[in-house]
């Protein structure tokens, strides 16, 4: 069972309180009427699901109730970072730095705090 750092509660909390909510940073277009069917399919149905770094949404469902975003490495199953919904997508450079920090063998429990 993971320990997940909730960016709103500001503490590491048991996974049982959380729910995964899929890929992050998929922005719902303000005006979808001009979207082609193919673009809509990309937006709503198609997901990358890469091995390794995933930017994903979680909800502190049985806690503060807030949705937030996380950078999680699906190989190590570790949270590299959590941040409130609405904050910008981490840059590639930042993701790289997070991965390097992980590779250095941090032993702090890795809840993304």
């Amino acid at each position: 069972m993971l320990l997940i750092h909730c960016p709103y509660c500001k503490s590491d909390l048991p996974e049982l309180e959380f729910a995964n909510a899929g890929e992050a940073h998929l922005v719902r277009p303000a005006d979808m009427s001009d979207m082609s069917d193919a673009d809509f399919a990309d937006y709503f149905f198609v997901r990358d699901n890469p091995k390794g770094v995933n930017l994903e949404r979680w909800r502190h469902a049985h806690g503060c109730g807030r949705f937030f975003n996380a950078v999680r490495d699906t190989v190590s199953d570790k949270f590299l970072k959590v941040y409130p919904a609405g904050e910008p997508r981490p840059s590639d450079a930042e993701v790289k730095a997070l991965l390097e920090a992980q590779a250095e063998g941090r032993k702090d429990g890795g809840s993304g705090a």
Partner: peptide, 10 residues
């Protein structure tokens, strides 16, 4: 205080 989970109940 906290909202949390107790077995299968919130």
């Amino acid at each position: 205080c906290a909202r949390t989970i107790f077995g299968k109940a919130e």
